[in-house]
């Protein structure tokens, strides 16, 4: 461990590699987490199937790649396809748990997660897959740092998607209805907003965002039917740390998590790369608890 730290201080150039890798992947984490913040904030549904929607999106890109379609074109396909899928899941399942206690939505989405990953496993098998975008890899700083073009492209795409989402939430009718419902669902209903439709749209939008994130993931990492749970935990870490309705916070936390994973993998070893994610989740919850503990008397 100390050896690895020594490497970083003697040859700081490797920090650049870790920073770049962390930021590129962190942007995609932030995207999926933004979807979670949306359903959490608007409908108070803790979607444990978040990561599995990401993986579904990845498989859409992979399947398209298999039949010769460029995986980047999978982005709109996954977005629309997952939107429809999310809407169906809402009508069949989420609508019925939305008014119930919170554990119900957690368990129900956990059930969805199991079904999604197992069906994917039946279709694609448990091998890791990757969607090859066929772009160049560039080497910078005397061959010490490599940057795959696809990482830059997906970073830009993730940013563009996030920007258009913000615009959508601010400007469009539906975006305004969503925000109104998030603030006070009962008041929104009285004002004539069809909250059921808003919920359906929100949930479907979340699935679509996850699908898009999955397409990007499948091009720069690898996907596998059972990788969803780690992505779900990442989303939870980010949202719990940032709080929902706090987009800059979500982005910062997403990037931070990407960096934390890369650095712990480098310094502590790959066996701690995932433990870091879970460890951060517990840590963030504890910090939240301490904060809440201070406010509890006041709030109640």
């Amino acid at each position: 461990m100390l050896d690895n730290l020594a490497v970083l201080s003697i040859a700081p150039v490797f920090n650049i590699q870790l920073l770049l890798d962390g930021l590129f992947i962190g942007a995609i984490f932030a995207l999926a987490a933004y979807g979670l913040a949306l359903v959490w904030g608007v409908m108070n549904v803790k979607n444990l199937a978040q990561g599995d929607y990401v993986i579904m999106g990845g498989y859409i890109a992979y399947s398209l790649g298999q039949i010769g379609v460029h995986p980047i074109l999978g982005l709109p396909v996954a977005f629309v396809g997952m939107f429809a899928f999310g809407w169906i899941v809402y009508v069949l399942i989420i609508r019925r748990v939305i008014e119930r206690d919170l554990f119900t939505s957690l368990l129900a989405t956990f059930g969805i997660a199991i079904v999604v990953q197992q069906v994917l496993n039946q279709i694609y098998g448990p091998e890791v897959r990757t969607a090859d975008a066929g772009l160049e890899v560039r080497t910078i700083i005397g061959g010490q740092v490599t940057v795959a073009d696809i990482r830059i492209v997906s970073f830009v795409l993730a940013a563009a998607l996030a920007a258009s989402l913000i615009l959508f939430m601010k400007r469009s009718r539906m975006g305004q209805a969503i925000r109104a419902t998030a603030q006070d669902a009962r008041a929104a209903k009285i004002m004539g907003i069809d909250t059921d439709r808003v919920y359906a749209f929100t949930y479907a939008l979340n699935a679509a965002i996850c699908g898009a994130a999955g397409v990007l993931i499948s091009m720069i990492w690898v996907i596998q039917p059972f990788f969803g749970i780690t992505h779900s935990i990442r989303s939870f870490v980010i949202v719990t740390a940032a709080g929902f309705g706090n987009l800059p916070g979500v982005i910062m936390a997403g990037l931070g998590l990407g960096l934390a994973e890369q650095y712990s993998g480098f310094v502590l070893g790959a066996e701690f790369q995932q433990a870091t994610v879970v460890g951060l989740l517990v840590l963030v919850l504890v910090i939240r608890q301490i904060q809440q503990g201070r406010q509890r008397q006041v709030v109640q």
């Binding site: 490497v7 992947i25 990492w221 596998q224 070893g269 790959a270």
Partner: peptide, 17 residues
């Protein structure tokens, strides 16, 4: 001497090392 966890979808940190 890195051990890859079960669900690891990325080993770029190990490869940077």
């Amino acid at each position: 001497d890195d051990k890859l966890p079960r669900d690891l979808s990325d080993m770029s940190a190990t490869l940077t090392k």
